[in-house]
């Protein structure tokens, strides 16, 4: 079985040690997904697996046969960039840009978690079918994505503009 990456089927690597991150970066040259630590501590390698955010450095590529992966390169639609990508530019949600693809993919995955009612440490209504977007929810849920340049305010502003009030 193949791995579907941004809509294109790819064979799983022969070497079972290859992480999904290295498959993306080194074999497919999809270098938009970044390697900041290779040990699950920074979030720079975040991609979406069937819509769920995962750390691709902690994922072995062979585990993803039959699954569908979306990376930063696959986020834009027919009519251009994803609204969150545009909001990141508008709100200056990055400086060096190295954590940025991970932040953006992570936020897209986070919106899906809110929509399906997955609670976080700061959620008060644990029984709600969907969790309401708040700045605090966003900050809590985005805390696995480190940014050393200190673009935090712009990142949260971009996410808020995109998802607050949107029907998730």
């Amino acid at each position: 079985m193949a791995i579907r990456i941004n809509g294109t089927e790819t064979r799983a690597p022969a070497d079972p040690r290859v992480s999904l991150l290295d498959l993306l970066r080194e074999t497919l040259h999809l270098t938009g997904t970044k390697k900041g630590c290779n040990q699950g501590a920074c979030g720079a390698c975040t991609v979406l697996a069937d819509g769920e955010r995962i750390l691709s450095c902690l994922a072995l590529a062979v585990q993803f046969e039959g699954r569908s992966i979306t990376t930063i390169e696959g986020l834009a639609g027919q009519d251009g960039m994803h609204p969150l990508q545009l909001a990141f530019i508008e709100h200056d949600g990055f400086q060096c840009g190295y954590c940025t693809p991970g932040q953006i993919c992570s936020a897209v995955g986070m919106a899906a978690e809110l929509a399906r009612g997955a609670p976080s440490a700061v959620t008060t209504d644990l029984g709600a079918a969907t969790v309401r977007f708040t700045g605090e929810e966003a900050r809590e849920r985005m805390s696995g994505n480190l940014c050393r340049c200190g673009a935090h305010n712009g990142i949260i502003a971009a996410i808020t503009q995109t998802y607050a009030g949107a029907a998730l």
Binding site: R25, E26, H29, L30, T31, G32, T33, K34, K35, T71, I72, E73, L75, A76, M81, Q85, L86, F88, I89, E90, D92, F94, G97, Y98, T100, P101, I104
Partner: peptide, 21 residues
């Protein structure tokens, strides 16, 4: 003015040192 390299960076198309094959 928004960063001129913004579109590249938010789409993962800005190439960093370890990304030149």
């Amino acid at each position: 003015i928004s960063r001129i390299d913004g579109p590249l960076k938010v789409q993962g198309r800005a190439k960093f040192a370890a990304e030149f094959p």
